[in-house]
């Protein structure tokens, strides 16, 4: 019934202004994102080394990717990193957000700012260099502190001593995970907003029902912020698969030792810009897109019963 009525003039004006103001972004998206995206899809079916025009090779790049050992190694490294960094990042961010959501803590605003500041430079060259230095097995402060606690020879008889971090293939991914925690401030801020949106009446009702702190967290806080957790999980997963700068800096662009820091996007970069295999690298990019798409769909499907949306239809917003 409403749909056949003429739209009020104000609404039409508003729509016009909306399109006017949004148009630079839309034009930019189509030209600077949409164009390259389509170009990379086309290039993925070609052999292209910049010097010569692209020559079509059909699905050869895709077949070659599946035969490439380093591709699987890079997938494993990025997958392992995602598996470790995303859950750990969520736990740390949420814990920090809860700490900074306390009432009656003096200088709370200052603490929130201080804990957020490192996130501004997370994933940067500066942080990679910083952690390279902190985790240096010979000169780094982390191993220095460990040696203070367990002694130079390690904790006898467990043999526990400072790891060799970026120099030991088994410790490379955990080292990058540790580095990723530097940027917990971004998610922390989102959780903080989520926590502040939980109605206090729910906590009061739970308290009256005799729920302790842990029950209140499990039965009130977690369900109420579950859409936020899902959001940070999905964005964190996408970001983790795309990690590049720290791996490039720490490994000097080699991805070593023993391909332990050959993250997926680093390998893609090496193929494109060091080895001039732009067609092959485009294939890698599309493969990554497909992987992330599948994982995102799985996460959204799996979350249906676990995520609580206060208003019906909120789940459509993600």
């Amino acid at each position: 019934m409403l749909s056949i009525l003429p739209r009020p003039k104000m609404a039409r004006n508003e729509a016009l202004w909306f399109w006017l103001f949004i148009s630079p972004w839309i034009v930019g998206l189509i030209l600077f994102r949409g164009g390259p995206i389509l170009a990379s899809l086309a290039l993925s079916f070609t052999e292209y080394n910049v010097a010569d025009p692209p020559s079509p090779v059909g699905f050869e790049n895709y077949a070659r990717l599946l035969r490439d050992d380093i591709f699987y190694k890079s997938l494993k490294v990025s997958g392992l990193y995602t598996l470790m960094a995303v859950p750990l990042g969520i736990v740390v961010s949420l814990l920090m957000a809860m700490l900074l959501n306390q009432k009656g803590v003096p200088f709370l605003g200052v603490f929130r700012t201080l804990y957020y500041i490192p996130a501004l430079v997370a994933g940067s060259v500066a942080v990679a260099l910083l952690f390279q230095w902190l985790l240096n097995p010979s000169f780094g402060i982390i191993n220095f502190l460990i040696s203070r606690f367990v002694g130079e020879e390690g904790l006898v008889p467990l043999g526990l001593s400072g790891p060799r971090w970026f120099f030991d293939p088994n410790w490379v991914v955990p080292s990058f995970v540790l580095m990723s925690l530097w940027g917990f401030g971004g998610s922390m801020l989102i959780y903080l907003a989520g926590l502040q949106g939980v109605p206090t009446a729910l906590y009061e009702a739970a308290r009256i029902d005799g729920a302790g702190a842990f029950r209140r967290f499990r039965n009130v806080t977690l369900p109420m912020i579950s859409p936020v957790i899902l959001f940070t999980f999905i964005t964190g997963m996408i970001g983790s698969f795309q990690i590049f700068t720290p791996a490039y800096i720490v490994s000097g662009g080699v991805g070593g030792p023993a391909y332990a820091s050959m993250f997926y996007v680093l390998y893609l970069y090496l193929n494109a810009f060091r080895r001039y295999r732009f067609g092959f690298a485009s294939t890698q990019a599309w493969f990554l897109f497909i992987i992330i798409l599948i994982l995102t769909i799985i996460a959204l499907r799996a979350s249906r019963s676990a995520v609580y949306y206060e208003s019906p239809g909120d789940d459509k917003m993600i």
Partner: peptide
């Protein structure tokens, strides 16, 4: 020709050996 890939290959495998 293709030195970058050669260098990356032996550096990766020798990296563990040196450490």
């Amino acid at each position: 020709v293709g030195f970058d890939e050669l260098n990356s290959t032996w550096d990766n495998l020798l990296g563990v050996f040196w450490s």
